[in-house]
């Protein structure tokens, strides 16, 4: 039987509907490599994951466990939790790392409750001290840095997507199938799944280097296209305030803020966004913030490195024209 290194870090890698590894994989394995030996677990429906071992090894997994538990694509979270429990029994890791995605949090919560492990949520970094693995958090919109560790035992840590820049060195592919005894825990069943069509070639909001976000000031779905246009000129991802999402101009997944996505890009451009504290909580750690707003007292200006008091419908087209002209 395979033996696993003393300092193993068990990393749960998610797969995409088409069978590849999810984008979060590189950051998770990168984080694991900083504090120990990354051991990956890839869970999928029978035959659904392609080249999981090669792909995970290329991103730094020293060993790759692949599991195809019954019902992996038909029941929420439980089959993956069962696989993770089996993997943890085998590997005896110093920590378990999971993506802080919707599915990742469901798995982390159930797994931590089942194994009575300490849970650290939404970490933006990990480190190791004499006692074990420490999780670093950025809370209240980046206003505070908090370090957490378990009183004892291996912690379960969910890692914020796009927050880890470190990448692990590629390893030689070494994989083994994992046998998963079903726990029998009841789960919700998945009756249908509709993959979100990838609508553009734009960078993904999570982890993007540049973000252009639009708020209520865009006034309509048609006018929101202006945000897309500026994003395309800058090579940026598109984000939105909750007001814009609530209005139905953009999908939920565009929401930046406390209850949406937290981003830390090099550049954040806020168009017609007032800068409510809940919005700022998701973007105020950006390196450079630019805001265009017609209200000189909009709170977004308190944190903007470059603020323009003006009508976005005048300023943005001029900005786009000017940037396009200089590119030629």
């Amino acid at each position: 039987m395979t033996t696993f290194p003393e300092d193993s870090i068990l990393v749960l890698l998610e797969t995409t509907p088409s069978g590849g590894l999810a984008k979060s994989a590189a950051g998770l394995l990168g984080a694991a490599s900083q504090v120990g030996t990354p051991i990956a677990l890839v869970v999928s429906a029978s035959g659904a994951a392609s080249n999981a071992t090669q792909n995970a090894a290329a991103l730094g997994a020293k060993q790759v466990l692949t599991a195809e538990p019954e019902g992996a694509d038909a029941r929420l979270a439980v089959p993956t939790v069962d696989a993770l429990a089996a993997a943890a029994d085998l590997v005896r890791p110093d920590a378990v790392l999971i993506s802080n995605s919707i599915d990742g949090r469901d798995v982390a919560g159930r797994f931590a409750a089942r194994t009575r492990s300490a849970l650290a949520i939404d970490a933006v970094g990990v480190s190791r001290d004499e006692e074990g693995i420490v999780a670093h958090h950025s809370v209240y919109g980046g206003a505070y840095n908090v370090d957490c560790a378990p009183t004892f035992g291996a912690p379960v840590i969910t890692v914020r997507e796009g927050s880890i820049d470190v990448r692990a060195e590629a390893a030689s592919p070494e994989g083994a199938p994992l046998d998963v005894p079903p726990s029998g825990a009841p789960a919700a069943s998945i009756e249908s799944f509709e993959e979100q069509a990838v609508v553009s070639t734009r960078p993904e909001l999570r982890g993007a280097a540049k973000v252009v976000a639009g708020g209520r000031g865009l006034t309509s779905q048609e006018q929101f296209a202006l945000v897309d246009q500026l994003a395309d000129v800058l090579g940026a991802a598109v984000g939105a305030s909750r007001a814009a999402v609530d209005a139905g101009w953009v999908p939920n997944s565009y929401q930046v803020g406390q209850t949406g996505i937290s981003v830390s890009p090099q550049l954040y451009v806020a168009l017609g966004v007032s800068g409510a504290i809940q919005h700022r909580a998701g973007m105020q750690t950006a390196k450079t913030i630019v805001a265009i707003n017609k209200d000189p007292d909009a709170p977004i200006f308190e944190i903007a490195d470059f603020g323009v008091v003006g009508d976005l419908f005048d300023v943005v087209p001029q900005l786009i024209a000017s940037l396009s002209a200089r590119k030629e």
């Binding site: 009183t151 000189p296 323009v308």
Partner: peptide, 27 residues
């Protein structure tokens, strides 16, 4: 096992930079 805080620190608040009023050339 319980999750405990080892350290907490406050990040310096962000401050405002340049603010201009559009006079037709802000773009």
């Amino acid at each position: 096992p319980r999750s405990i805080m080892l350290a907490v620190s406050e990040r310096p608040a962000r401050s405002a930079g340049t603010k201009i009023v559009d006079e037709g050339d802000a773009g």
